[in-house]
């Protein structure tokens, strides 16, 4: 990125100066509004995919109405000097809303149910955005962008692999990155991410496979711990596919 950056543009790293608190669930908006009398957290004032400066009590932060969880949720980007204050306010007010804590394992389960990709697991250098089925994030009408020429050539050539979501028929283990996917005896691809989806009660995985097998409903197999188990290609968004919850 630096190679293309004009001198008038500054790039400042803010990884260590801020921390995110995610507040997720049907009562998230109510909880945050209860701490924030001068701000409007309503659906009309802050629709899905908004970014707004907000205060919670006397702490100030950037709030984003987005989340990997697929629930009505907010990512709060908080300067570290106000992180403890924000935590204290949310957890104390949260008691009457049934607030519970969660971590990375829960996030991983929830994002698999929404078809959300994880960078470095599902989004990798060897596959282009068309093969990754991320066409909606590509605009080939743009006059220019880095990699446009190559992407146009690739589009003309057609995909070498396609990204799919799979339901795994196995009740004792999740799929792991690198597990092989077969059609009959033919090796046709491999897993990028896998895990159990608790809200939809399905054992889920993502994989890149040969394009001719990528249609929803295709029945394939996975080599899981040395044994073949059935898998089926499914729609990526298994939980709340209409996105009613995140729209709030």
């Amino acid at each position: 990125m630096i190679a293309y950056k004009p001198d008038t543009v500054s790039l400042t790293e803010m990884t260590a100066s801020h921390t995110i608190l995610v507040v997720a669930g049907p009562k998230s908006r109510e909880l945050l509004q209860s701490l924030s009398p001068r701000c409007d957290w309503s659906k009309e004032a802050m629709p899905w995919m908004s970014v707004q400066e907000k205060t919670l009590g006397h702490a100030k932060m950037i709030a984003m109405s987005v989340s990997f969880s697929g629930e009505l949720a907010y990512e709060l980007h908080i300067p570290n000097e106000q992180l403890y204050l924000t935590w204290k306010q949310i957890t104390e007010a949260g008691e009457s809303f049934g607030l519970g804590l969660f971590g990375l394992y829960a996030t991983e389960s929830m994002r698999l149910e929404k078809g959300y990709r994880h960078w470095k697991a599902d989004l990798i250098y060897e596959r282009n955005p068309l093969e990754s089925c991320l066409d909606r994030f590509v605009n080939l009408e743009k006059p220019d962008f880095v990699g446009k020429g190559a992407l146009l050539e690739e589009q003309a050539r057609g995909p070498q692999k396609l990204f799919v979501s799979l339901e795994v028929d196995c009740d004792f283990a999740p799929a792991h990155s690198g597990d092989s996917i077969y059609s009959g005896d033919a090796l046709i691809g491999s897993v990028t991410s896998g895990g159990y989806g608790h809200r939809v009660e399905k054992n889920l995985a993502y994989a890149f496979i040969d394009p001719e097998f990528a249609a929803v409903g295709t029945e394939l197999s996975i080599d899981l711990l040395g044994e073949m188990h059935p898998v089926k290609v499914i729609e990526p968004a298994q939980y709340d596919p209409e996105n009613a919850l995140v729209r709030g």
């Binding site: 995110i20 607030l99 829960a106 929830m110 809200r199």
Partner: peptide, 28 residues
């Protein structure tokens, strides 16, 4: 994990995401 998610689904959950890559890009 199932219980953590059940509570998120019914009520509300809180998670800290430390060390998320973040850049501010500004200027003409």
């Amino acid at each position: 994990v199932a219980q953590e998610i059940a509570n998120i689904q019914q009520n509300v959950g809180l998670m800290e995401v430390s060390g998320f890559n973040r850049y501010e890009i500004k200027g003409e």
